[in-house]
């Protein structure tokens, strides 16, 4: 499945935020979006995710596989997202957070199996019943990603997911995230302003709209 952005512009009060975007992300690839702060990187992600604030106007087409995303509400887009905050649900334990992402019909036993396998892969074996508030920053980031992936998204958006981690952690979390995305073979879009965050892949520079 490929994520395609065609002739995308976003305007606020008739002022474009950035120059027209035309972008194609192949499955398993991670494209990095860069640009000065305030240039509308996160707004572009919102447009793809489906929660663009009403003050913005979007034109152009967002296509995922053979589906046009523009008219679809958030819940039908099948786009996963990771923020710089882990946004783990504080009232659920690790397993609870993950099983929330599994399809409703999944059998309890299967759920348990899927979760434990996925935790094993992340080096978090036996973490099922840990309170998410007690995890370290790196562990939280990993659980958050695992949770996003369990929902089987067809594309994933990464909104500065590493910016709150310290230098050493960043390294390992980053390679874990990238590896997982590649294994799943889905397109990913990464927003960051730290060039070090970018994988060895194309970097797309978002141009300022007024320039």
């Amino acid at each position: 499945m490929t994520l395609v952005l065609e002739h995308i512009t976003i305007t606020l009060n008739n002022q474009p935020l950035f120059t027209e975007v035309n972008l194609r992300v192949e499955p398993g690839r991670i494209v990095t979006l860069m640009g000065p702060s305030g240039c509308g990187k996160s707004t572009l992600l919102s447009a793809i995710f489906g929660n663009l604030a009403p003050c913005f106007r979007l034109s152009g087409e967002i296509v995922l596989g053979d589906r046009l995303l523009n008219p679809l509400p958030m819940e039908q887009r099948r786009v996963g997202i990771l923020f710089q905050d882990d946004l783990l649900f504080p009232h659920l334990d690790v397993a609870g957070n993950m099983s929330f992402a599994l399809p409703a019909g999944t059998h309890r036993h299967d759920k348990k199996q899927i979760i434990s396998e996925s935790l094993d892969r992340a080096g978090l074996s036996g973490f099922e019943h840990r309170d998410v508030a007690t995890l370290s920053g790196g562990q939280k980031a990993r659980v958050s990603l695992l949770r996003t992936l369990l929902a089987k998204p067809q594309a994933i958006l990464l909104d500065e997911p590493f910016s709150k981690l310290d230098q050493e952690l960043k390294q390992s979390v980053r390679s874990f995230v990238f590896a997982q995305i590649r294994t799943l073979n889905i397109p990913a879009l990464l927003v960051t302003h730290d060039p070090e965050d970018a994988p060895d892949e194309p970097i797309f520079n978002l141009g300022a709209g007024n320039a």
């Binding site: 819940e75 887009r77 997202i81 946004l87 929330f100 929902a151």
Partner: peptide, 10 residues
């Protein structure tokens, strides 16, 4: 937002 994208149900 995260919950909706995960569960596909508001």
């Amino acid at each position: 937002d995260v919950a909706i994208s995960l569960s596909q149900s508001r």
